[in-house]
Design a protein around this nucleic acid. Sequence first.
DNA 1: GCTATTTGCTGACCCAGATCAAGAGTTACA
DNA 2: TGTAACTCTTGATCTGGGTCAGCAAATAGC
Lengths: 253, 253
Amino acid sequence: MSMTHTQSRFNSTLTSQCQNCSLSALCLPIALADEDINRLDQIIERKKPLKKGEFLFRQGEAFDSVYAVRSGTLKTFNITSVGEEQITGFYCPSELVGLSGIDSNVYPVSAKALETTTVCEIPFSHLEELSSQIPSLKHQLFKVMSRKISDDQQMMVLLGKKNADEKVASFLLNLSNRFKKRGYSASSFRLSMSRGEIGNYLGLAVETVSRVITRFQKNELIHVDGKEIEIVDFHEMQKLVGVASDCGKIARI
Amino acid sequence: MSMTHTQSRFNSTLTSQCQNCSLSALCLPIALADEDINRLDQIIERKKPLKKGEFLFRQGEAFDSVYAVRSGTLKTFNITSVGEEQITGFYCPSELVGLSGIDSNVYPVSAKALETTTVCEIPFSHLEELSSQIPSLKHQLFKVMSRKISDDQQMMVLLGKKNADEKVASFLLNLSNRFKKRGYSASSFRLSMSRGEIGNYLGLAVETVSRVITRFQKNELIHVDGKEIEIVDFHEMQKLVGVASDCGKIARI
DNA sequence: GCTATTTGCTGACCCAGATCAAGAGTTACA
DNA sequence: TGTAACTCTTGATCTGGGTCAGCAAATAGC
């Protein structure tokens, strides 16, 4: 905002600070006092950008950090016993990746960039230590993990009970919400993942994803141009997902 | 173990302590020093048993506690917009229920007893406070939540990618492991949930669950008598689930 | 620029598992 | 102790979405 020239000169991508990060209102610094943000800032390492297809970490590697996405998108996935990829999540800016490694001290999934992506590395031992000193940081961490648990459970419901239309509609509305939260358009956005990756994530064949998207377009629920998506009829999409009538609960994946 | 008469007189179900709890080695007290267990013990309330079908908490209620199961089994579930139940998890002794409420301060699921069940109530604000003072408790909490995240992600893989045989086999082996960890037989146990609940959880129709179980029995993988299950051929069951790294997909027996 | 490879779309066909139906046990409670 | 209400099983049938195949369009590599 009101940086001196000296500060701004130092704030290259790699040295930028949480205070100046447009994501701080969504990321871990939420609800932290200025001095606390500073302390958090000091344990964070800004990494150089990952190019599309590069790994952030690999399944089985020793866990030592969680990562906040700054720009771009990541996917996490397992390799099944049959050798095929199973995507377990997509991560957008401000979201935390790697939390599932805390328990076993090993990343149980791999994380790979879907496009050019920058992340902040947060060494977990430092974060844990700092969280003892800053209760609101600890609380924030518990909240982030709790949120991940309830989101994943919603995803389980989706995978277990919903049909192809509902799955794809949920997926698109979920992305829409995530874009909106970060101040981008909720109705127009670009998919950074391929149809194949969407299908893999949703438990559908590529062809099904393709057919459903085409049909949504034909029925004027959405407008599609390659990876560009515009949600035209939010109301109908939400009905498809089965949003509860009364309360304004938004479909979460 | 070596309690005085006075102590034992006070240690009814409702007043028993973490120190004397056979589950302490699996539950939160793991890796806590004796004096720390005492402090944890003081914030925990033992509740009177829930009868089968009673709620521990309901979706939408204010979140204030997590619960450790002491005996019996719970299920957690959502009610979908269509009004049907969607089970998101089963909870056995030593497991923690309610963690998904931390984020929103509201339980996003309901929890109901599948049989007579006793729990320890752990008011979360106290737990959080105590965790600031006892680093190993905080670490344990992070681990439990992280574990839940990776377990749920495994469940997502199961729901999205596996067929009926693989789902049922995974489910049975998963239960088996949980019994084993608590010192019970890994091969013989009693299902506290109905076929319908298993199907609901696994994204299968009741009829399919029933048929798969019958077929497993016919092929001498398991022996079934109502809710009593005996796993006869662990090796074949594990092959079915896909633990084997090398060999390809197992043909249906 | 030109080929090679990946990504997306669509049609034809098939099958795993859902749904429907019906009977036999089991459990609950009045 | 009887009966209503679940729960489980099994068979018959149907169908959503998977698989296979072929082609078009977009990207990457040379």
